[in-house]
């Protein structure tokens, strides 16, 4: 059954085009997203990486149209399969949320209802999207899902309340709730950031298995580049409301083309030599109160040129699946293809 309608892997499931999101605050308009474009293929895991405030979560929430006032999606298109989510009416969007697109939040305990048994919360997700189901068969399906999530004694655990569970268990419940409806797209917003590394390893292994089983696509948001390297097929690196680099995970992490990505990778202390100071990107993240009229990384960039503070860099295509928004790639400054100038050691 699954094989018959298995699409070709290059088929686009989600395509976000020139998305702009502004927040109208007392201090002025915060230009949170300034023209974000990316696509996600079927059965692919795309990572959104970047630091606090770069717009990762806003991007993810926009896909489900979950931007609350004072935030507003100003322009852009979000094409999911063949529908533009931004032009659908509320009923249609509600059917998509939790049914075709699910979202896992960072803090599992904050997202679960504290006064409803966890099994019922998982079953509720099924009942909302499949009206033909009755309560008891939804419960049975929910328990099956919990067993698949590696939860011991699923029947007993499903009768518990969220406060009785550990962080790792609660996150398993969340993932069960989100995957039980077999969504086409799973948005995971820092799913393991609140967990310890040994629990994180368990959850990531489990997610990987289930995502394979259900053949769902994943939009994985994380600030942990290690998690990204292990789970994603492609990654997009965000900085101050823009995607600055995007490509296959190996090519972005091994051969980063944007100075920000290069800096970010060098600041990770994991393999650094303790006798040398760590590489640090100088300065701070710029204010987003001004509309973008130049490269927002130019103030902190080692390679900044005069035009960087005057123009917005377009996206340059390096290879079929690797692009960066940086003037360094304009014309001859970097030869595209096989041999590339090593920006790390110029």
């Amino acid at each position: 059954m699954l094989l018959k309608d298995t699409p070709v892997t290059t088929d686009k499931l989600l395509s976000v085009q020139d998305l702009r999101v502004h927040f109208h605050t007392l201090r002025g308009i915060v230009h949170a997203l300034e023209g974000v474009s990316f696509h996600l293929n079927r059965q692919e895991t795309l990572g959104l990486a970047g630091e606090t405030g770069c717009g990762k979560s806003v991007t993810a929430r926009s896909v489900l149209r979950l931007i609350d006032p004072p935030g507003r999606i100003v322009s852009g298109r979000i094409i999911f399969e063949d529908r533009d989510i931004l032009t659908l009416d509320d009923t249609a969007v509600r059917a998509i949320r939790g049914g075709e697109i699910s979202m896992i939040m960072q803090e599992p305990k904050m997202s679960l209802n504290p006064v409803i048994r966890v099994g019922d919360q998982v079953a509720e997700a099924l009942l909302i999207h499949d009206t033909s189901l009755n309560r008891s068969s939804a419960r049975t399906q929910a328990e099956e899902m919990l067993t698949q999530m590696g939860i011991p004694e699923a029947h007993r655990t499903s009768r518990r309340y969220p406060h009785e569970l550990s962080g790792g268990m609660a996150q398993r419940i969340m993932i069960a709730m989100m995957l039980v409806t077999r969504p086409k797209l799973l948005i995971a917003d820092e799913p393991t950031s609140a967990l310890d590394v040994t629990i994180q390893a368990q959850i990531l292994a489990l997610m990987d298995k289930l995502v394979q089983d259900i053949r769902t696509s994943v939009l994985m948001i994380t600030h942990d580049l290690g998690v990204m390297a292990e789970t994603c097929d492609r990654v997009a690196v965000m900085y101050a409301g823009n995607i600055v680099e995007m490509g296959a995970v190996r090519s972005v992490l091994k051969d980063p083309q944007h100075p920000y990505t290069q800096g970010l990778l060098k600041t990770v202390p994991d393999k650094a030599n303790p006798d040398h100071p760590l590489y640090a990107i100088k300065g701070n993240v710029p204010s987003l109160l001004q509309p973008q009229n130049h490269c927002r990384f130019s103030d902190r960039c080692e390679y900044a040129m005069a035009r960087c503070s005057r123009e917005i860099p377009p996206v340059y295509q390096m290879t079929d699946d690797h692009e960066a928004a940086c003037f360094l790639h304009d014309g001859q400054s970097i030869s595209s293809g096989g041999k590339q100038v090593d920006l790390m050691n110029p």
Binding site: T198, Q200, D224, L225, G226, A229, E230, R250, L265, D270
Partner: peptide, 8 residues
Amino acid sequence: SLPSIDPD
């Protein structure tokens, strides 16, 4: 358990 940033 520590995920590595090196895909290799």
